[in-house]
């Protein structure tokens, strides 16, 4: 794929690094909704690892934290974006 010079991704193929391991996070708390919201799209869905580049360990903690925040009404299950 990359040997072909005309390939669209030729120039900008950089692997995304995990935000949590870069910051050295130990436990993702379900209360800091501001950080968690950065990992959900505008419909309130959790973004997949291939988009955010988070490592597996933190993605598991992240989904658990988001689901706890949703249970307590701090994060939406379905965010209806105002059409």
């Amino acid at each position: 794929m990359l040997k072909n010079p005309q390939h669209p991704k030729k120039g900008n193929l950089r692997n995304k690094e995990c935000k949590f391991s870069k910051a050295g996070v130990i436990y993702i708390d379900y209360k800091d909704v501001k950080t968690l919201q950065r990992f959900t799209n505008d419909q309130g869905k959790i973004l997949p690892r291939r988009v955010t580049g988070t490592s597996a360990r933190y993605q598991r903690q992240l989904t658990k934290a988001i689901k706890r925040a949703r249970h307590l009404g701090m994060m939406p299950f379905v965010a209806e974006n105002l059409r």
Binding site: K19, F20, A23, G24, V25, I26, Y27, D29, K34, T35, R38, R68, H71, L72, G73
Partner: peptide, 28 residues
């Protein structure tokens, strides 16, 4: 209306100590 109880294991306790000291790693 709703409640959530969590038992803190060692990792979360370590996080809690950092939180108390105010030295939490900033993600963004």
């Amino acid at each position: 209306l709703r409640f959530l109880t969590l038992k803190y294991d060692n990792k979360m306790l370590h996080h809690r100590d950092l939180q108390k000291k105010g030295k939490l790693p900033v993600v963004f």
